[in-house]
Design a protein around this nucleic acid. Structure first.
Length: 407
RNA sequence: GGAGGAGUUCCCGAGUGGCCAAAGGGGGCAGACUGUAAAUCUGUUGGCAGUGCCUUCGGUGGUUCGAAUCCACCUUCCUCCA
């Protein structure tokens, strides 16, 4: 099975401009393709990860990836599929985010000798001359067409500024620029990028009379139709400081039954034969599939050792309930103790398990807090210094564990 | 530039002088049931204390014994006209 067929089998391909040509180029390692990453935060997240995986797969098949960092487009912000305008970022933040992206990407993509290129569109976008740009590029865009794009639909109801409308033109210009200067003949991206990408192929055709191709990656949606990789607290980050390997592991460990196999197929590098076997699993057996998913992904992002740690911690907590070596922990300062003790509620707030004492009180009253596996039945309960010296295991609900200790 | 409408708690959204820490829904959290899943049911969802206080309805002032609610100015957004 060749790479294009494999991508298809994994369900990664959403839309393509010319299937025959793309298959031909990709399968024979003749593609130089780019994917753009706008520096919207100081860490990559799961959505980026999919794109990076795709890059890696294609790179392994002999194609040449171009990573495009959006130092210029980030100054605008892509309005596609959004209900509100993004907050404008200062150039300093953009630069900082780019640096963070670079570090994380180097883990996945081999940038060695002519194997991959990294560019920043700030290098050409920032020095564009407005009038020249309008005359050279602007003439080729029909506002009527742009507004018809599906991705602007929501924005046409709530308002879309001229500023943001230009994003599509910038992205199209990027493709044109890379085509001309780097021989980049293909662009990949999330499915929400489809219109922007078509803008690029169209521009290349009009200006140079040549064909370039675009392909989008299926958005990773759960069975309810929501984007995956988001929690109530925000995105699931790849940066260990923003989402710890344990949290990352747990996120995937807890995906819906209906979504496990899809995730394994789309996100992991496990061979398809093995995945097809797992497809037959049902009921509680899916729990094993979830473990595999969680382990494989944690391994890809944080390395094998961290993945093992996360898995051990998870087993310890949910299966045997003994080992607490990888539990998040907080050191309690001795000044916080009054008469050698600290109140449970204060302790929980101190550890960040709850946001306020009121919240802590509620959870305790609802019977959701255990200290060293013993249910706390009074909000007046105190923890002694002696207990803290050996370390206290606090459990809130089923999934939040925390260790508090004193030195 | 002109005319109208809107801004409420994490989100959506009710509330047009006291009964408002503010309906309802979503989401979150906890409990039951389970497989660390889903669905379902129950409780809870500003803060600090414990039956009272403090802060909150875009912002700043004002009217009033009392303001999310009335008035003035400012601000942001939306719709229509140019």
């Amino acid at each position: 099975m060749k790479i294009y067929e494999e991508l298809q089998a994994r369900g990664l391909i959403a839309q393509v401009t010319d299937e025959k040509e793309i298959r031909e180029l990709v399968n024979n390692g003749k593609a130089t393709f780019y994917i753009g990453f706008d520096p919207t935060a100081d860490s990559l997240h799961v959505g980026h990860f999919m794109a990076l995986c795709l890059m890696k797969r294609l790179q392994m098949a002999g194609n040449k990836p171009v990573v495009l960092l959006g130092g210029g487009t980030g100054m605008i912000g892509d309005p596609s599929g959004r209900t509100d305008m993004r907050t404008m970022m200062t150039p300093e933040i953009i630069q900082h985010n780019i640096e963070c992206f670079k570090k994380q990407m180097a883990r996945f993509i081999d940038f060695g000798e002519d194997k991959a290129i990294m560019v920043n569109n700030a290098d050409w976008l920032l020095e564009l001359n407005y009038i020249e740009m309008l005359r050279e590029v602007g003439v080729h865009f029909s506002v009527n067409n742009m507004l018809r794009a599906e991705c602007y639909k929501q924005r046409l109801e709530k308002g879309l500024s001229f500023f943001e409308l230009n994003y599509m033109i910038m992205q199209s210009y990027d493709f044109y620029y890379l085509f001309k200067n780097y021989g980049c003949n293909m662009q990949f991206g999330g499915d929400d990028q489809w219109s922007n990408m078509l803008g690029g192929t169209e521009l290349i055709r009009r200006k140079l009379g040549k064909d370039a191709y675009a392909m989008t990656i299926t958005l990773l949606l759960n069975s309810e139709g929501n984007k995956m990789g988001k929690t109530a607290k925000g995105a699931v980050w790849l940066d260990a400081d923003k989402t710890s390997p344990f949290e990352f592991y747990q996120y995937w460990r807890n995906v819906n039954d209906a979504d496990v196999l899809k995730c394994i197929r789309m996100l992991t590098f496990l061979p398809l034969e093995q995945i097809n076997e797992m497809d037959k699993w049902e009921g509680s057996q899916l729990n094993d599939a979830k473990e595999i998913l969680a382990f494989e992904l944690t391994k890809l992002i944080h390395g094998e050792e961290e993945a093992k740690n996360a898995q051990n911690a998870s087993h310890a907590l949910f299966v045997s309930g003994t080992d607490d070596s990888n539990m998040p922990s907080t050191e309690i300062k001795e000044e916080l103790l009054v008469d050698g003790v600290i109140n449970v509620l204060d302790l929980m707030v101190e550890c960040g398990i709850t946001k306020s004492k009121s919240e802590a009180r509620r959870v305790v009253q609802q019977g959701g807090v255990l200290i060293d596996d013993v249910k706390v039945d009074s909000i007046d309960q105190n923890i002694t210094k002696e207990q803290l010296k050996t370390g206290v295991k606090i459990r809130k609900g089923k999934k939040t564990y925390h260790k508090a200790f004193i030195n």
